[in-house]
Design a protein around this nucleic acid. Structure first.
Length: 207
DNA sequence: CAGTCGATGTACT
DNA sequence: GTACATCGACTGG
């Protein structure tokens, strides 16, 4: 299979409701043609974020300089910096003016393993290369320069592999948030070894 | 294997 | 000042 011959997801894919898009992204191929060589991986874990009723979403309190990309027309990347050292990568969804996106939490590496291993020296096993949102950004060398990048033009694209059997999709609470934990807006492929471990989100600081 | 905790920059209060 | 859509080193079993 030549990954670069797979069809790129079109604009219509990204203009649907975010809670439909999130599970639909599972099994799709995240591709980068930047840098020393092709890097590609199958999306196996995502989380949806939406301005409406989701207090964990960056867009919940309205448009700001930081989250402005989330409100644009779907089909672009929203990349943010967090915890003083990490980037996370989201797919912006829905029409212009709606603040919504899907966080890419984990992929299963398919191509460019040599490049990924160089970018992820801390990973001792291949399962640890891309099983977290900041790890995916390291593997793809994604940073603030990619904020707003068009996924229809690249160099980062998401493609459809029609022969792919994705298996069972599971919904669960999202990871690492404190607000709106009751929303089951994390989606992953059951049993896939590249899905991150679901550690409890609760963190207390006062104790 | 699981649990704990420090690192570190930025947006927002 | 504080919280943060995290990671990896470290500990104990």
């Amino acid at each position: 299979m030549n990954i670069l011959e797979l069809p790129v997801l079109d604009r219509a894919f990204y203009l649907r409701p975010t809670l439909e898009i999130a599970p639909d992204l599972l099994g799709k191929i995240l591709v980068s043609t930047e840098g020393p060589g092709l890097v590609a991986g199958r999306i196996v874990e995502v989380e949806a974020y939406h301005q409406d009723g989701d207090r964990a979403a960056h867009s919940y309190r309205g448009r700001t300089k930081r989250n402005e990309i989330m409100f644009r027309e779907g089909g672009i990347l929203y990349v943010y910096f967090t915890y003083g050292m990490h980037f996370c990568m989201n797919v912006v969804t829905e029409k212009e003016g709606v603040g919504a996106a899907v966080l890419i939490r984990a992929v299963e590496p398919l191509a460019g393993l040599d490049v990924i291993r160089k970018r992820r020296p801390a990973a001792r096993r291949d399962e640890d290369l891309t099983n977290g949102p900041a790890k995916v950004c390291q593997a793809y060398a994604v940073n603030r320069r990619h904020n707003g990048l068009c996924l229809l033009e690249g160099p980062i694209t998401i493609r459809r592999d029609d022969g792919d059997e994705k298996g069972k999709i599971v919904a669960s609470p999202r990871i690492g948030i404190r607000d709106s934990v009751e929303l089951p807006w994390r989606f992953f492929l059951a049993g896939n070894p590249f899905v991150g471990k679901a550690k409890p989100a609760a963190r207390g600081r006062s104790g």
